[in-house]
Design a protein around this nucleic acid. Structure first.
Length: 482
RNA sequence: CGGGGCGUAGCGCAGCCUGGUAAGCGCGCCUGCUUCGGGAGCAGGAGGUCGGUGGUUCAAAUCCACUCGCCCCGACCA
């Protein structure tokens, strides 16, 4: 379809929406804040799911499914949890033409209903660890919504694990954050900063929340995944205890972790350009699109025959599509597939048949090259690997070029809007200082990063707190976020 | 919830102030012919109770009242 994309520099929000519409990833639904994920978007989500699910299985998790509807009283059992989620819960008050005795909450997250079941399933240390994941939809009544980034209903995955010791739960939370980091960097080609959320930013009901934070092209931070050490909070709320091998009874230790369709938004804002969507090859539903070029009927027959042969050959190893639509010109198809983000375009015309070659055009750089038809699958695979790496490198460069050290609060305030970016600083403040920071700068502490590799602070181990001036070794990354 | 904007063909819009042969444009869609290495050209064609309700009037897309919905910017969040 013909669709004009607003340039990023002109209006970043409109650009984001235009990319989604042009690539036909999603569309607005009749209900406010809800979206339809269209086949192009869903195929991408399926690829993300597959990669993540394989990693979950490889780390010993099993999938299950818990109900959409949760008794309201369950939410209320964990004090912080209910306080955090109550404002954004949708409720079912009627069913079967009658008012329900107890309203049912449409899950905003499933900790409560899952732990109500774990109570029955966990008796002894022999039942632990319990490692369960579910793929589902959730609803959170958001005030302001944006396609993929924040919608009333979204798709996600939520892992819920139970452990015998605090150490095991902690290790699990960290391990799954590692899985998310690997997925973000190796599959999405999106570099992330892994770290701990502050007390203020942590999940309602958690002891500690871990996060991966990515820099979008407008230099804002996006939380791309979270993992929580829930301690014994939910075990206490739902009275889930077990006997250890010495016959001692204790509450079970828990974690939960999730990523959502928000990752699609992250992908868009990490790699796409003014011509439209850009997909990393490893997640692209179509990795190579073949565009045949011909004039006369005889050419058409010969080119399509050769194109079909190449398609079969490439199909062995790659996800390939032959665009043999007769009613569109090659130029139209070039634009069409560029908007849709297909990493590699393969052009095949009469000239190429004569020379037994093809023309390959990469989506990320637009670079055009010819390649012999012999050994084409190898050449395409190599090029796709190269694109995957180039996307990562480019995103990492953007982050590096827009990461700064600040040593005073005034300096932060002077630079947070312009030039903007990630600001590394020492921090020892309390929650009220964090609130003040947020109110005065509109930025937030994204996390306390684990690693200092990327940090301009990497060579120093101690400094003074940005707000209080007290000596501290605690580092934070501050940025405006989504 | 506060501030701003908008509802007219599938999409993007003009028309409204100054009521009356203005239901109009571009893109898309359909048919045919010519085209096809960066969004093809020409010709013909289909498609709209002007968001809804009520009012003013001889006459309403146009004026008035009410109402519904959506988008954008701020307070919450994956």
């Amino acid at each position: 379809m013909d669709y004009k994309i607003t340039p990023r520099a002109e209006d970043y929000s409109r650009w984001y929406n235009d990319v989604i519409m042009a690539a036909q990833l999603a569309d607005y639904a009749p209900v406010k804040g809800c979206m339809v994920i269209r086949p192009n978007g869903f195929a991408l989500w399926e690829n993300m799911q597959r990669a993540l699910d394989d990693m979950f299985k490889a780390t010993g998790h099993q999938n299950a499914y818990f109900p959409l509807l949760i008794p309201e009283s369950f939410l209320k059992k964990e004090a912080e949890h209910v306080e955090g989620f109550a404002p954004e819960c949708a409720m079912v008050t009627h069913g079967g033409g009658k008012k329900l005795e107890e309203p049912l909450v449409i899950r905003p997250t499933s900790e409560t209903i899952i732990w109500s079941m774990y109570k029955n399933w966990i008796m002894s240390y022999r039942d632990l660890p319990l490692l369960i994941n579910q793929w589902c939809n959730v609803i959170r009544w958001e005030m302001r919504t944006r396609l993929f980034l924040r919608t009333t209903e979204f798709l996600w995955q939520e892992g819920h694990t139970a452990h015998a010791t605090a150490e095991e739960a902690e290790a699990e939370a960290r391990r799954m954050l590692g899985v998310y980091t690997t997925f973000a960097e190796d599959w999405m080609a999106m570099p992330v900063i892994a770290g701990v959320k502050t007390e203020k930013e942590k999940f309602a009901g958690a002891v500690r929340t871990y996060t991966i934070e990515a820099m979008m092209q407008d230099k804002r931070a996006l939380q791309a995944g979270t993992s929580h050490n829930l301690g014994q909070n939910f075990a206490r709320a739902f009275d889930v205890t077990f006997l250890d091998d010495k016959g001692t009874r204790d509450f079970v230790w828990a974690t939960s972790w999730g990523v959502s369709t928000r990752l699609i938004g992250a992908l868009i804002m990490t790699h796409s350009d003014d011509r439209g969507f850009v997909l990393p090859p490893k997640l692209a539903p179509t990795q190579v699109v073949i565009v045949p070029i011909y004039r006369k009927e005889a050419e058409r027959t010969a080119v399509l025959k050769a194109a079909a042969r190449l398609r079969v050959e490439l199909k062995e190893r790659l996800r390939v599509h032959l665009d043999d639509r007769d009613q569109y010109t090659p130029g139209y198809k070039f634009h069409d597939w560029e908007q849709k983000g297909v990493p590699l375009r393969l052009e095949l015309g009469p000239r190429d048949l004569q020379n037994e070659q093809v023309v390959l055009v990469r989506r990320d750089t637009g670079a055009k090259q010819t390649a012999p038809q012999a050994g084409l699958a190898d050449a395409c695979a190599a090029l796709l690997d190269d694109i995957q790496q180039a996307l990562y490198d480019r995103a990492l460069t953007l982050r590096r070029e827009n990461s700064f050290t600040v040593s005073s609060y005034d300096e932060l305030k002077a630079r947070i809007d312009e030039p903007g970016g990630f600001f590394w600083a020492y921090w020892n403040g309390a929650t009220e200082d964090e609130v003040r920071l947020q109110e005065e700068t509109k930025a937030t502490i994204r996390c306390l990063p684990f690693e200092a590799d990327e940090s301009p602070l990497k060579d120093s181990l101690e400094g003074t707190c940005l707000l209080t001036g007290a000596p501290t070794s605690q580092r934070v990354v501050i940025a405006k976020g989504y």
